[in-house]
Amino acid sequence: MITLNVNNSAHQVSAEPDMPLLWVLRDLLNLTGTKFGCGVAQCGACTVHLNGEAVRSCITPVSRAENQQVVTIEGLSKDTTHPLQQAWMAHDVPQCGYCQSGQIMSAAVLLRQNPDPTDEDIDLAMSGNICRCGTYPRIRKAIKDAAKIQKQKSNA
């Protein structure tokens, strides 16, 4: 049994230590917001936060997450009010939507570490996340707006 903390609740899973965190989340814990896209850390659809960092869960063995803090898209906010989620809605970013959980989880690390990201910062943070629908221009705009929302919230 492996114990891990996902979205602030403890879970015990019966899994081989090399089982990728992605499949533990999806197939054992039924948290399907985190997506399978490539299986080799190329596309970023599986991005979750492991102790606050945007790891690619498809190649992260669950053993690495043992007794650590995991946050998935389902746990990013209680009520879809994270500044990124709000900005994503304001800009109608998603098209098919499949990659967007990963995009948002990556962007969340950017915003935490850089509250005022430039275009270059966005490129530095977000180039590991592929979107086949080509929502990149809107992702860029939404991240900048989310930064503003984040500031307003912290000032409020």
């Binding site: 850390a41 991005t47 063995p61 950017l110 977000m126």
Partner: peptide, 27 residues
């Protein structure tokens, strides 16, 4: 993927080395 060094050499933001590179090779 536009991966960059960062000041500590460990990558930047959502593209830190250990976001993908594990402590041992993945099969």
């Amino acid at each position: 993927m536009n991966v960059h060094r960062g000041t500590d050499g460990k990558g930047l933001y959502a593209l830190k080395c250990t976001n993908c590179h594990q402590s041992k090779n993945v099969p």
